[in-house]
Amino acid sequence: MEVDKGKGEAEETRKVAEADRDTVTLKSSDGKLFEVSKEAAARLSTVLAGMIAGGSIDDNGTDLKQIGSEALENVVDYCNKHANSIPSAALISSSISFNTAPFKEPEEWERKFVDRLSHDALFDLVEAANFLGMERLLDVTCHKISEMMKGKSPDQIREVFNIKNDYTKEELEEIRQELAWAFYDD
């Protein structure tokens, strides 16, 4: 009896520990598992926060069928690096009427984080951030891509993003004319 009772208590303790676990396990579309701090996940992702609050987190790996392993690895990496950052409330509270863009410039580590990614990895990460409702990560990745267009000529933009020019010469001239007077070249 004594032993059994002790066993029951141990079981109880284990269950409590399970519920109090400070990480969540996420599963990519190709079945790979990643662990991320529960606190960071809840703080940085509105979707994960909702799942944690709603108890729909699977200890054996919460299925994220829309996110590939490379993108999920980057998401988890980002969450871990973001450990000492500002609370999500400050990021989300952008409802003041006269607020200009609530976006804050990427920090040094965020810049480095997106700079090392290939184009495809970056695009995958934008989609993952959008899917998970990670406002800050979406901001940082979109900012990075917009930086790749800023100050570039149409030819240069086509080259960076590997886009075919499907305009005829006449059409292009027409577009240039359309706003020529408003579009001032330095």
Partner: peptide, 30 residues
Amino acid sequence: GGLHLPQDLVVEILSRLPAKSLYHVKCVSR
């Protein structure tokens, strides 16, 4: 276009561009 993303995310990216860059992007493709 060649930016392999859903449209709403492309707009999200373009919304961060100043007007002048937008004119250049307009000339990139139909």
